[in-house]
Design a binder for these strands. Structure first.
Lengths: 200, 200
DNA sequence: TTTTGGTTACACAGACCTGTGTACTTAGGC
DNA sequence: GCCTAAGTACACAGGTCTGTGTAACCAAAA
């Protein structure tokens, strides 16, 4: 009643399934047979839509490259909300780190033409620029530098959560971000609940 | 003249070579044949020293698990020197990220008994405790929390450098660490040279 | 000299991988 | 009814991987 019949194209079905399996299980760990079997199509069909596994991997990474939607909230709130969003994702049981970092870790040395790595770089840079522009709107002097530092907190908490599986890493990153923002002259509310840390 | 004859045991030779190849090329990308060939021994000999590739991987990770040596320098300097050391490692062309994070990214889903991941967790925690104890000596109130935040900066800069190959990530992390330390009441010198950033 | 322990050369099993070739089926548009 | 496009079933080539089995070799110790 709500949505029109999906009419999802075959290519999109393949990509969606490849995304799930590549991300959760690892790119090298998943063969094209597995992807085809999961959808219930023949391997031949998959290869009719993607000329090689590498092409599929590239499409997978491109698909993961989504820009944050513009928001009306004040910039400082947007920045801090990033870490709340991270904490939510960390708490989901299907979180397995940053797909771009994982891809570089898995495939880096044999990605000789840097196809995958360039996508990863573009993604990291786009997030840095997103931070930077928000910081500029806040009148921060060294918006470039602070933006870089914020991305370190984001990626640091992701790496730590990947290993430790502890969503509190996102909260720790948020606290640190608050300090860095305040130090740059941004007015920012204090940590929400008055309770101690180590709630979980 | 200086060193006595190495008499390096065969097991150690295997481990050393496995370390180099696993780290630089990736664990899944390197087969036991490749390791044996690199040393110039037969695959049989390798399997006489390690019952399986998994055992070799585990020994590789254990070997990477080294504690920082105790130092006489003041705690704050030790903490900041961590990032200088990182910057040096980033600048070496054979730096390929954190071996523990990479191992979890590569092998996480099939490491069902968590052998590899537990080593990674132990390593991350040991570094966090190292930070924490230094912070306690500095009289920092929330040494636990700040130590966690510092590990985020370390791992964040490692992940960013892995992707971007930009040693400046270590300097950015150091700047952020300085702000966090100052905010916790630690007296800390200002950034060394008076120049602007973006030196490279 | 004989024994012993580590090593070598080499084949092989069994599994998995990417990618292709081919002939068959099925559904829609004309 | 007929044609086309998409998908299917299935085999297979050629490569990789882990791990084992076996017989020969070699050096040092007894």
């Amino acid at each position: 009643m709500a949505s029109p019949p999906p009419k999802q194209t075959m290519k999109e079905r393949i990509l969606e399934t490849a995304d799930k399996l590549f991300y959760l299980q690892g790119i090298r760990a998943i063969g094209v047979d597995t992807i085809a079997a999961e959808i219930g199509i023949s391997k031949r069909t998959l290869y009719n839509h993607f000329p090689s596994k590498d092409a599929l991997i590239e499409a997978y990474l491109q698909r993961r490259f989504v820009q944050p939607r513009p928001s009306d909230k004040p910039p400082a709130e947007q920045i801090l909300a990033t870490f709340d969003s991270l904490e939510r994702r960390f708490s989901a049981k299907d979180f397995r780190g940053c797909p771009f970092v994982n891809a570089v870790a898995e495939l880096g040395p044999e990605d000789e033409d840097r196809t995958f790595r360039n996508i990863a770089i573009a993604f990291k840079e786009s997030r840095r620029l997103w931070f930077r522009d928000l910081l500029r709107r806040l009148g921060v002097a060294d918006a470039e530098g602070l933006a870089t530092q914020l991305t370190l907190l984001v990626d640091g908490s992701i790496a730590q959560d990947l290993v430790r599986d502890d969503p509190a890493m996102a909260r720790a990153a948020k606290e640190a971000a608050r300090v860095l923002l305040a130090n740059a002259g941004v007015k920012v509310g204090s940590p929400a609940p008055a309770g101690k840390k180590r709630a979980g």
